[in-house]
């Protein structure tokens, strides 16, 4: 008997294609949407609960979930199909019939403290000029939304966040900086994000977080993972120093 599911999610159809001999990608659609993200999150959960022989890991993205495996183990595993691709695809297609209870499955909400403006937000003026909003309004709007982590990509620990208020949309800088410090909070077009490492970049930097987004010494090196929710909380310079342990 199947346990009663109060809020079931049914996995819609997906297309499977080969990324490499050791990975297939499941494509759930072509747009950025909360519905697709939820489908991907849930299917990822189902797969981790019911892995096949040789399964290694997954990479969730906006509209895809990529599944990595050991081809040699899959090849000799007792799975339906002849080629490695067939064996993995057939298995994954069968997992579609699994149902998952959404009420039990939610990402974490993580609060990221941010000191906005000043030396830490050198582009707040430029964003203000472009959006015709005061600095205070920008900070208020940026910190009053709950953002969704759609995926981690680009550099270790970098979150692709969805949900920024359109009023903050500002194009990238004409001249990218050679180094944007780790922890810099920025805006690029309709996106907002936080730099996890010192990297070159063209985002409009509006603030800085003392939070460490990436640390290889942590058990989970990336602070955020796909499916989490993020809230930015404005802090004072004193709080910033305190959080940094100064």
């Amino acid at each position: 008997m199947e346990a009663e599911i109060s809020n079931p999610l049914i996995i819609k159809n997906f297309e499977i294609y080969s990324l490499s001999e050791q990975a297939v990608t499941l494509s759930f659609g072509k747009e950025i949407s909360e519905v697709l993200a939820q489908q991907i999150r849930c299917f990822n959960h189902i797969l981790h609960q019911n892995p096949f022989k040789g399964f290694k890991t997954t990479v969730p993205a906006y509209a895809t979930l990529t599944v990595f495996f050991d081809p040699i183990i899959v090849f000799s595993a007792d799975l339906e199909g002849i080629s490695i691709f067939e064996k993995v695809s057939t298995f994954l297609n069968k997992l579609k019939t699994f149902k998952i209870d959404l009420s039990n499955y939610k990402g974490e909400t993580i609060t990221i403290p941010v000191y906005y403006g000043g030396d830490f937000g050198p582009d707040l003026d430029e964003v203000s000029l472009h959006t015709k909003l005061s600095k205070e309004e920008i900070i208020k709007i940026h910190s009053s939304v709950t953002y969704k982590v759609y995926m981690i990509g680009f550099v270790p620990g970098f979150p692709y966040l969805g949900g920024m208020d359109n009023r903050l949309t500002t194009p990238r800088k004409t001249h990218p900086r050679a180094i944007v410090p780790a922890g810099a909070v920025g805006i690029a077009g309709e996106q907002t994000g936080v730099y996890p490492l010192d990297t070159p970049g063209g985002w409009q930097i509006i603030g800085q977080t003392p939070a460490i987004l990436f640390d290889a010494k942590r058990e989970q090196p990336s602070l955020l993972k796909a499916g989490d929710e993020v809230v930015f909380k404005p802090i004072t310079l004193k709080e910033f120093d305190h959080l940094l342990g100064k």
Partner: peptide, 10 residues
């Protein structure tokens, strides 16, 4: 290392 691809570790 393959186990941290979802955290964007190559």
């Amino acid at each position: 290392r393959m186990d941290y691809l979802d955290q964007a570790i190559p």
